[in-house]
Design a protein around this nucleic acid. Structure first.
Lengths: 338, 338
DNA sequence: GCATGTTTGTAGATCGGTCTCCGCTTGTAA
DNA sequence: TTACAAGCGGAGACCGATCTACAAACATGC
């Protein structure tokens, strides 16, 4: 039926060619103790000659697969590329390889399938899974979570300082003189599922700052539904309010881009300020020029990978890392028209 | 040292609980022949009760891992998200799972590491590997290549109709009245490594159309060097020519975005037309509004995955699929100022 | 010279599945 | 009744590594 896939060369082939045992070859490739220089050389020559590469499946069955899984909720997210870049950089000089698992739908099943022995450790960006489940997962395989404010037992976290980041945005908008500031955040359903996502923190900060500025009546929290069209509708609703906001603080840059599009479509560009979050590459484009919060996405990815490697090396105490943020002020935010 | 990772439940545990042999359990989970309804039920109950999930590593060692690898050259590429979406959609109702492997550097090593038994098949978007090497790879594991115009023996290809796509862009620009049209394409080094990348075709079409229009003297092929700064410099060089182009046809949208930024920075937005390729989501943004070629990226990804699944089901004849393109005319291209 | 270590290499169990072959029942045709 | 096929379930080899235990060789100290 199917062609005979050229059976690849195994450790036994190498052992035979080098005239040693399989165990010896295994030691050499793992840099294990008990190998004489002479044998190392003969084995390495054989490996070279045959073009041998160890089977990941076989290694994983007994030892490690030397693969780290990075679960990402939606591939299109521009912020994710920062994470991936950072993580990739961190594993670059290790024997580990990064493997991405896009969560098309339910994140639980993607994480499960990663944990099924494919990888030695998992980095995940999943706001929608609950802590107890994660603790359970972490009992089976080392886990580092990104963008979680929870207080875990068995897994590590890397997260931006959303308190400061959102605060900076609000301070900036208020200082510009805005009074009617709206906030666009994730769907209620998502927020309800898990205790503390970054967005939940951002909303809280938004509310607090508004209240502190005596603007409680102007508090306006809109929620996008999944998909771009949901964001467009939310934007349209905001713009159609009897007293529309003069500034919109969007949950993150991808959303802010759609908001900008909506504002532009309404012909009110420059009139209504828009701020985002994540400082993605597009926010820096001169035609977009979006005020945003840099939360060091690349560094987040790198930190997460590094912490995971530490776990693999034996660390058992949990670690939680918080990254500083900095506001990048650009042309999309300016004083309200008087 | 490290905590005892809670050993997960194996097929033997299920067999014991269900009071059957391991082979029987295996048959049930693989839907194999020779299972009575009664046994199926008992086994499924045991699986449910224990929360059993087969180990990917163990399965892969003998049978299949039920994982498909998708190699992507640069994660940030906005076109890639279309591919991933499509591929994900195509495997959604199969037992297969998509796994992404970002090629941070040399694509060869990323592909190798995928082929090391991690996946049952590979989809790759690697213009920089040469055909003989791919043939070799395809002998070990089924391969579908995206964006390749070569004429392979052992692997399949899915590619856009670059001839028509690039032709449409040129026809459009010429019809608008442009005479000095420049083309920005990939570095010479890349083009030299492999025979026919999509970009090579686009360049050829550009040259031909210019010649046909009697504009041979105005032919201007600029090449970007890796990284955004390289593109910026290339754009600056073009704009600084004694007789600068009135239109720039960029190799793809990501590049076109940088070109647009450069044109904007030079204060010549609206004066110089810019066209891209791939019809990425950003090209559709009203603030960008970039004329581009839709080459059905989502469909490409879906086709590739489907073809790979066919291979896994036993097909051995090669297949080559070409996707139609359509030009999306937007505000970034307009008649030259006279 | 002998007991004791230290290197160096190997044998063989093991990981958790898949898959081939084989035997036991049953049903059915001769 | 006998023969044969089809259906069902299990025994056990096997995939390609890792890893523990152990043996052989060699050095060292007294």
């Amino acid at each position: 039926m199917s062609i005979t896939r050229g059976r690849s060369v195994t450790i036994s082939d190498v052992a035979r060619t080098a005239g040693v045992s399989r165990a010896a070859v295994s030691k050499v490739i793992r840099n294990a103790y008990g190998v004489s220089p002479g044998m190392r050389q003969r084995v390495e020559a054989a490996i070279e000659e045959l073009g041998y590469r160890p089977s990941v499946a076989a290694r994983a069955l007994r030892g490690s697969s030397y693969r780290l899984g990075l679960e990402i909720p939606y591939v299109s997210g521009r912020f994710m590329t920062q994470i991936v870049d950072g993580a990739n950089r961190a594993v670059a000089d290790t024997p580990y390889q990064l493997v991405l698992a896009p969560a098309d739908g339910p994140e639980y099943s993607t994480l499960e399938s990663l944990a099924d022995g494919l990888v030695d450790g998992i980095i995940a960006v999943s706001p929608r899974v609950d802590p107890p489940w994660l603790e359970e997962l972490a009992r089976r395989v080392p886990v580092v979570m990104l963008g979680r404010h929870d207080d875990p037992e068995g897994y590590d976290t890397v997260v931006g300082d959303d308190e400061a980041g959102a605060g900076a945005v609000m301070d900036h908008l208020l200082a510009l003189g805005h009074r009617r500031i709206a906030h666009l955040t994730e769907p209620e359903a998502v927020a309800a599922e898990t205790p503390v996502t970054p967005h939940v923190v951002r909303v809280a900060v938004y509310r607090r700052r508004m209240a502190e500025a005596g603007l409680t009546p102007s508090i306006e929290v809109a929620r996008w539904e999944d998909g771009d069209s949901g964001v467009r509708e939310a934007t349209a609703r905001l713009l159609a309010l009897p007293e529309p906001p003069t500034a919109i603080f969007a949950g993150h840059d991808d959303i802010a881009l759609v908001v900008l599009a909506g504002v532009a479509a309404a012909g009110r560009l420059g009139e209504i300020s828009v701020a985002g979050y994540d400082n993605t590459d597009m926010s820096q484009h001169p035609l977009i020029d979006l005020t945003s919060v840099d939360q060091q996405g690349v560094e987040m990815g790198a930190q997460a990978a590094t912490m995971l490697l530490e776990r693999l090396r034996g660390r058992t105490e949990r670690r939680q890392h918080v990254l500083a943020t900095s506001l990048r002020i650009r042309g999309s935010t300016r004083p309200p028209r008087t």
